[in-house]
Design a protein around this nucleic acid. Structure first.
Lengths: 142, 142
DNA sequence: TATTGTTATACTCTATAACTATA
DNA sequence: TATAGTTATAGAGTATAACAATA
């Protein structure tokens, strides 16, 4: 007792995938409760700072042509606006509205399961998990 | 030095979301390299054991009506089959083919970034991360 | 009556390619 | 020429509602 066999890489990937899936389901459910799709909510999250259409596509990891529709819908809901860029008349800068900011905050507060799950960890466990995420992320991204 | 301020729940959620996003992008890219969408690959993953259509919908977290199309496409690719159930003539049981199993294994081996990322952790770190995932998961799921 | 799988419908997300207006 | 955003198009995922076959 007291010693544990380390999990295989495959097992660890399974565990991480399960946590990721559950997390994003919680996110999607919270977004849906406020009338947003996952993509719309994810876009809104990227708009705490004004972002050109093209850059938004990069953040969402999708083609630029998709962003037109996503921002159209956010604009239709009164959650974002397109503004002209000062320097380059080709670019449009997407800005979140006050209402958009309010809805975004509501969505994030509304992720009840995620809050419960991570708030249940001790300070030491939170520090450990955060550190492991930060160590793993660059290799996962690169 | 030597002491760190524990991250806020919000910061921790950000870190977990980033890892989850990167993980699923790696998964989607590996699936795409083998001609599969994320949903198709996820379905295939659920088929290591034969599963009725309805139960597959549950595992995928989507409506039963969607599974018809997803399995149609897997069947079209020769990766899965629909078989009649012995006891209940209403239910169809989805079975993975040998080719499907082969493609699934290739996809999972092909997640190069995820393998590199998690293999880079020490045995102690792997044990810690796995334990934290397992502790958090029930609260995230329930 | 209830359940399983399917179909019909509509909306969203996605990529590719072609277009426009700028640069 | 090259780039930013849009449009057109097509394929896929998603939910809702209605349906046939079976329980």
């Amino acid at each position: 007792m007291g010693t544990t066999t380390p999990p295989s890489t495959a097992d660890l990937m399974e565990a991480v995938a399960a946590v990721g899936t559950a997390y994003f389901q919680d996110f999607a459910a919270a977004a849906a409760r406020h009338g947003l799709s996952s993509s719309q909510a994810k876009a809104l999250k990227s708009l705490r700072e004004p972002v050109p259409m093209r850059a938004l596509a990069g953040r969402l990891g999708c083609d630029a042509s998709n962003v037109t529709g996503i921002v159209d819908r956010l604009e239709g809901l009164g959650l974002a606006n397109r503004e002209a860029s000062a320097g380059d008349r080709r670019v449009k800068i997407v800005t979140i509205t006050d209402k958009g900011l309010e809805v975004l905050d509501q969505v994030q507060r509304d992720m009840a399961k995620a809050h419960r799950a991570f708030a249940s960890l001790s300070p030491e466990q939170r520090t450990a998990l955060d550190g492991l995420c930060r160590q793993v992320l660059p290799l996962l991204t690169g």
